[in-house]
């Protein structure tokens, strides 16, 4: 009997066939095709209540879960420490227990973690040999206790040994440089560009260029210093010389009567004349007094006094 229906036509009618809604000629054609087509028989059996012709692979569900939720063993391992410590939430704990019941590998891992929690803490104590205490006591008695360090020094010491300190210092330094030279309002903003310009130029020309204003400044300063100090010094020296020469001249004039009265005293002593000697001594004392007055008085003040008192009257 020839097949009046192809596979595509059968697939279109399969739903109605399974539900029992297919009638008449369509039903007969579909049944005829189903009887002669193994592929459509498998499809009919799979979608119907009959047992599937092909069994699904045993690890199909597992492979699908691995692709969608990841490997359950990895997730179980990540949670196993909290599970052993009793810190896992209730839902996660139940899921993990289901997995552990089916997975020998993860079950052994959790068992090992439980055993380690028992075996590790006793390892905190290991006894050294009996002479240990005596050796330590002898060493500490021999060494005096160090002075307690100040807290500030300790803080600095801790800072210096910190491994990140160099990074922190570099960071702070970079920020400072940026604030000083990088901010738009900074007066030193042009310094880096100028420095780069100087680095790229001929150092001899730079020094020569820079030395010109310096030399001018030095010359100006020298001139000012000469005008303010040198000229004044010369004027003062001249004035001092004038005063000294004037006083010398007056002293020389004043000593003439002294020499004369001295001669008179000598003659009186030679003649053994008491009256002459007394007169000469008196004159000599008067002249000495006058001489001292002239030498110690100021010539300028005296000339002014003469100008204000031309008749020579004594004030």
């Amino acid at each position: 009997m020839s097949d009046p229906m192809d596979c595509t036509g059968f697939e279109n009618l399969l739903g109605s066939l399974l539900e029992g809604k297919l009638r008449g000629a369509e039903r007969r054609q579909a049944e005829t095709h189903l009887a002669g087509c193994p592929r459509c028989q498998g499809l009919h059996a799979l979608l119907g209540d009959e047992k599937p012709i092909l069994d699904a692979p045993a690890d199909l569900t597992r492979s699908i879960l691995e692709r969608t939720s990841g490997r359950p063993c990895r997730s179980a391992a990540e949670q196993s420490c909290d599970f052993v410590d009793g810190k896992l939430e209730e839902t996660d704990r139940q899921l993990l227990e289901l997995h552990l019941a089916a997975c020998a590998e993860c079950g052994a891992l959790v068992g090992a973690l439980r055993h380690l929690a028992v075996d590790l803490p006793p390892l905190a104590h290991l006894q050294p040999d009996p002479r240990f205490v005596g050796d330590v006591v002898a060493a500490t008695v021999a060494r005096p206790a160090a002075r307690p360090r100040t807290r500030g020094l300790e803080t600095w010491s801790r800072l210096l040994v910190r491994p990140r300190l160099s990074w922190e210092v570099a960071y702070v330094g970079a920020m400072l440089l940026w604030v000083v030279f990088g901010v738009s309002g900074s007066t030193l903003r042009a310094v880096p560009a100028r420095t780069l310009q100087l680095l790229g130029s001929n150092p001899v020309e730079v020094v020569a260029e820079a030395s010109v204003p310096i030399a001018r400044s030095v010359a100006d300063l020298g001139q000012q210093a000469w005008e303010t100090t040198g000229a004044k010094g010369i004027g003062s020296a001249r004035q001092l010389g004038t005063v000294v020469s004037e006083r010398y001249r007056r002293a020389e004039v004043a000593t003439r009567p002294l020499r004369r009265h001295g001669t008179e005293l000598g003659e009186a002593m030679a003649e053994l004349s008491l009256d002459g000697g007394a007169e000469a001594l008196k004159n000599l004392g008067g002249e000495l007094k006058s001489l001292l007055k002239q030498v110690t008085s100021d010539p300028d003040a005296e000339s002014e006094q003469k100008t204000s008192n031309p008749e020579g009257r004594r004030s």
Binding site: S80, C81, D82, A108, L109, A112, L113, H115, L116
Partner: peptide, 23 residues
């Protein structure tokens, strides 16, 4: 790091003696 170290130790113990976590 602590959890990782515990898991590594558990695996290392099991590698030396697979019966360690049993019982």
């Amino acid at each position: 790091r602590s959890n990782r170290a515990r898991l590594e130790l558990a695996k290392a113990v099991l590698a030396l003696d697979p019966s360690y976590g049993v019982g």
